[in-house]
């Protein structure tokens, strides 16, 4: 359980990271918190020739909040975002989801960008990114591009990032409507363990209480965080009564093809994901009405 040999370089700036990546032709990996990469290397499921340490690159750290969005630089620690009072005020669903990410010890090292690029199917940050269709900014010597969450995740543990690209920040949009509410639920073996299934919902209501916009996403039970647009369409314009939610959810199980493993079989994950969507939707509805904090 020791990593294979590798070379180590410490980058001082984003330009240096991009240069190192371009010179290494896919043989180098960036290391930030290392909370996913180091175990993968210990188990020799990852064997990069070179590690590029980006922990000293200050331009990749920090949180910026505007009226329209919460921007988090890629190398910002998960614990810093979780502890931020401003993030909790502007985007409480992200704070809520972050409290389920690993444990105190791993959140103190793990970064927001690291979680996104590792694209674990159970990852809470990826789930929220997909829910809100966050925008990921990536850099390389070829320039900069912005990738929407809808096009960012390719399959389990794989993104659409090219080998020479470095994620620099993620921008989570804030919904401006007053009657907006969110819900987030997950099920795991122990508190803070990997989610067997997770679900998040965000919606806003008009003055008559009808659903004006809605986003629902499932994680853990799918290879990548997955929007369930059919259910969203069914609930648009409705009052989101318990009956309407129940009817709209009937088709969810057949949309999912969960992986089975030692922790849970596919049927269990399918059923749990469905229950969690229901809970997330009801929490979102109550928050939008102002009856749940």
């Amino acid at each position: 359980m020791k990593a294979a040999e590798f070379d180590y370089v410490k980058a001082k700036s984003l330009d240096e990271i991009c240069l190192f990546l371009s010179q290494q032709a896919g043989e180098a990996r960036i290391i930030a918190g290392g909370q996913t990469l180091v175990p993968l290397m210990a188990m020799r499921m990852a064997r990069p020739n070179t590690l590029i340490d980006i922990n000293d690159v200050e331009e990749l750290k920090g949180i910026e909040i505007t009226k329209k969005s919460v921007i988090i630089k890629a190398c910002t620690r998960q614990s810093e975002v979780l502890e931020s009072v401003d993030v909790r005020r502007s985007l409480p669903i992200l704070s809520d989801a972050l409290s389920h990410v690993g444990h105190t010890q791993t959140r103190n090292r793990g970064t927001v960008g690291g979680s996104l690029v590792n694209a674990d199917p159970s990852a809470e940050i990826s789930l929220i990114a997909r829910l809100l269709d966050a925008e990921m900014t990536v850099h390389s010597v070829r320039g900069e591009r912005v990738i929407k969450a809808a096009n960012f995740f390719s399959s389990a543990m794989i993104t659409n990032l090219d080998a020479d690209e470095c994620l620099t920040q993620v921008c989570f949009p804030i919904w401006s409507s007053v009657r907006t509410g969110f819900g987030f639920h997950e099920t795991s073996i122990r508190a803070s363990d990997y989610a067997l299934a997770s679900a998040a919902a965000q919606l806003s209501l008009d003055s008559s209480g009808q659903c004006r916009s809605i986003s629902i996403v499932i994680g853990g039970a799918t290879e990548i965080p997955t929007r369930i647009s059919e259910t969203e369409e069914q609930l648009m314009g409705s009052d989101l009564s318990d009956t309407e939610i129940k009817t709209a959810m009937e088709k969810i199980p057949e949309m999912l093809e969960p992986q089975a493993d030692v922790h849970a079989d596919a049927d269990y994950r399918r059923r749990v994901a469905c229950v969690l969507v229901g809970r997330a939707l009801k929490d979102a509805r109550e928050r939008a009405k102002g009856s749940l904090v």
């Binding site: 180590y8 290391i31 180091v38 175990p39 090292r109």
Partner: peptide, 10 residues
């Protein structure tokens, strides 16, 4: 933090 998840050089 977990000291098995960080290389000494870091």
């Amino acid at each position: 933090i977990r000291s098995c998840l960080i290389y000494a050089v870091m």
